[in-house]
Simulated scan of single mutants.
Amino acid sequence: MPVLWTHAEKLLLASTSATRLALLVSAGLPVETQNSDIDERAVEEAAAHEALDPPALAGRLAAEKALAVSRRHPERVVLGADQVLECEGAVFHKPADRDAARAHLAALSGRRHALHSAGAIAVGGQVIERFAASAHLTMRPLTEQGIDLYLALAGPDVLRSVGVYQLEGFGIHLFETVEGDHSTILGLPLLPLLASLRRLGSLAL
């Protein structure tokens, strides 16, 4: 049987994100997952002192995730990924509850925002590849009633992503325009990732 992945051990994803796992599986990659357990807010506070812009912040978070898991499994190829939502200079975080989700949608309503997605590959406790991509989305102007209806339709999934929407589901109703690769919007740019893995000799294709 033809083999795509060249390593004996599966790719180790430094995340328990079901969306990122599904993207990797859809690309035919053998994957295992492990939570990085990093303190993302602490990383963001340190990055603020360095005045990192949102794309660089996404890269820093991805690298810290990859490094945390790579130190535990230095023999494995470890992938870390993260995404930062930026709207008119402000960085958004995952909402803690439904009220925060409602506030996110109200703030994004009628505005264009960016999703900066980044990845890092680590081996032996060292980052050896980095990649990134951005997408831009313009949300329709939403009424309070529209926001409430969306939250009711989407259910608890609204707390799973920084933008409060799942574009592959009910979230598609919120937008006027979407500019960017679908995998970038979902938080893991597949084309740059696959290019990085080919450079490392991890893919036979």
Rank of each mutant, 00 (worst) to 15 (best):
S70F: 04
R72F: 09
R72M: 13
H73C: 06
P74V: 10
P74M: 05
E75D: 15
R76E: 02
V78N: 10
L79A: 08
G80H: 03
D82R: 06
Q83W: 04
E86K: 03
C87G: 04
G89E: 08
V91D: 03
H93P: 01
K94H: 08
P95K: 13
P95M: 08
A96R: 14
D97E: 05
A101L: 03
A101E: 04
R102C: 12
A103L: 13
A103V: 04
L105Q: 06
L105S: 04
A107Q: 10
A107Y: 03
S109Y: 03
S109N: 08
S109F: 07
S109T: 06
G110E: 08
G110N: 05
R111P: 10
R111F: 07
A114D: 12
S117Y: 05
G119Y: 05
A120S: 02
A122R: 00
V123N: 00
G125C: 09
Q126D: 09
V127P: 03
V127K: 04
E129Y: 01
F131K: 12
F131I: 05
A132I: 02
A133K: 05
S134L: 02
S134Q: 14
A135Y: 02
A135V: 02
A135L: 06
A135F: 02
A135P: 02
H136D: 04
H136Q: 13
L137M: 13
L137E: 02
M139A: 15
R140E: 10
P141C: 07
T143W: 08
E144W: 00
E144G: 00
E144D: 14
Q145W: 02
Q145E: 15
G146D: 12
G146I: 14
D148P: 01
D148W: 01
L149R: 15
Y150G: 09
Y150V: 09
L151F: 05
A152D: 15
A152Y: 06
A154Q: 14
A154L: 05
P156V: 04
D157Q: 14
V158A: 05
R160M: 09
S161A: 14
S161Q: 10
V162G: 12
V162F: 06
V164K: 07
V164S: 14
Y165H: 09
L167T: 11
L167C: 10
G169I: 00
F170N: 05
G171M: 11
G171L: 09
I172N: 01
I172H: 12
L174D: 13
E176S: 13
E176P: 01
E176M: 10
T177Y: 02
V178I: 15
V178M: 08
V178F: 03
E179V: 00
E179D: 15
G180F: 02
H182G: 00
H182I: 11
H182N: 08
I185S: 01
I185W: 07
G187D: 13
L188K: 09
L188P: 11
L188N: 12
P189R: 10
L190Y: 02
L190Q: 10
P192F: 07
L193R: 13
L193I: 12
A195N: 12
L197S: 07
L197Q: 12
R198I: 08
R199T: 08
L200A: 10
L200F: 12
G201D: 11
G201P: 13
